[in-house]
Computed example of a mutant assay.
Amino acid sequence: MQYVIVGIGGQGILFSTKVLGHIAMSRNEKVMGSEVHGMAQRGGSVISHFKVGDYQSPLVKTGEADILLAFDQNEAIRNLHFLREEGSLLVNIFDEKALENTHLNEYLKKRNIKVFKIKGYDILKEHMGGNFLFLNVLILGALCACDVSTVKIDQVRQAIQQLSPEKFADANLKVLNLGYDAIF
């Protein structure tokens, strides 16, 4: 399984990768990854390549990712080239009009890409008082609901309990469930 996880600095992309790696390693699977931080400290692009299985290189080649997890819709569009045909895109939507582009929809349809959307910021405003630090865990919950990877909600729950700072543990578990219920 090959993942590309994208977003902007501060959205928790690296923690999400750590959770996925923890799960794979607990199942005795081979794990490989690489991160490109860019201008992450200033809200710039962050890209994490993550592979589970018998691979030789940590980087995902263009057109070979099984899953693109996009914490930001603009980063999703910029990184669509990584997805293979019949791949899956899970994207945090904050402006649905951005994805109503005719050319974009033709590209997705032509390549049979499954698109799963989540309104992460709206959910976090409503249920977490606008604390967007939980976006990463929300996305992981949504990933489990999409049923496009081998990662299951109970495995993510257990990994979060082990990896999350104690003061965020209960909130992270709440958000994980919100993400699981939020796919549209």
Rank of each mutant, 00 (worst) to 15 (best):
69 L>Q: 08
44 G>M: 02
91 V>K: 12
77 I>R: 14
76 A>R: 13
53 G>Y: 10
86 E>L: 10
63 G>I: 02
40 A>D: 04
44 G>L: 02
60 V>T: 15
42 R>Q: 05
60 V>G: 07
49 H>S: 09
54 D>Q: 12
67 I>Y: 08
50 F>C: 09
56 Q>T: 15
90 L>Q: 05
87 G>Y: 09
55 Y>N: 03
79 N>S: 10
76 A>Q: 12
46 V>K: 07
82 F>G: 01
39 M>L: 15
58 P>W: 01
62 T>Y: 09
49 H>W: 02
68 L>Y: 06
43 G>Q: 02
78 R>L: 08
79 N>R: 08
48 S>K: 02
90 L>I: 15
63 G>C: 09
79 N>T: 04
65 A>P: 08
49 H>M: 06
62 T>E: 14
53 G>S: 11
79 N>M: 11
73 Q>I: 00
60 V>M: 07
76 A>G: 06
77 I>W: 03
67 I>A: 11
59 L>Q: 06
57 S>E: 14
55 Y>C: 03
61 K>Q: 13
70 A>P: 01
84 R>N: 13
75 E>S: 06
84 R>M: 11
68 L>N: 09
61 K>L: 12
49 H>L: 05
79 N>D: 03
48 S>P: 00
59 L>H: 11
51 K>R: 15
71 F>H: 12
53 G>V: 07
70 A>S: 11
41 Q>D: 01
55 Y>D: 02
41 Q>S: 09
72 D>S: 09
54 D>F: 07
51 K>D: 00
77 I>M: 14
64 E>G: 06
54 D>M: 08
51 K>V: 01
71 F>A: 02
42 R>L: 04
58 P>R: 05
40 A>M: 06
45 S>A: 15
74 N>F: 13
59 L>M: 14
46 V>T: 13
64 E>L: 13
66 D>Q: 12
39 M>K: 09
59 L>W: 11
78 R>V: 02
76 A>E: 06
81 H>F: 13
58 P>K: 12
47 I>D: 05
78 R>I: 00
48 S>F: 05
48 S>M: 04
60 V>D: 09
52 V>G: 04
41 Q>P: 00
45 S>R: 07
58 P>L: 10
62 T>K: 14
49 H>Q: 09
60 V>A: 07
40 A>K: 05
60 V>Y: 09
45 S>N: 13
91 V>D: 01
43 G>P: 03
89 L>E: 05
83 L>I: 07
50 F>D: 09
89 L>Y: 08
81 H>V: 06
58 P>H: 02
43 G>N: 03
71 F>Y: 15
92 N>H: 10
45 S>H: 07
60 V>N: 04
87 G>T: 00
91 V>Q: 11
60 V>P: 01
72 D>Y: 14
77 I>A: 04
56 Q>E: 14
58 P>Y: 01
43 G>E: 04
80 L>V: 05
65 A>L: 03
48 S>Q: 06
66 D>L: 07
86 E>V: 01
85 E>D: 15
67 I>P: 00
66 D>A: 10
84 R>Y: 08
87 G>M: 02
74 N>P: 03
72 D>F: 13
85 E>H: 14
57 S>D: 13
84 R>D: 10
82 F>P: 02
43 G>T: 02
39 M>G: 08
41 Q>W: 00
82 F>I: 04
81 H>I: 07
85 E>G: 10
70 A>E: 05
60 V>F: 05
50 F>P: 00
69 L>P: 00
83 L>Y: 11
62 T>N: 10
76 A>T: 05
79 N>L: 11
62 T>P: 03
69 L>V: 08
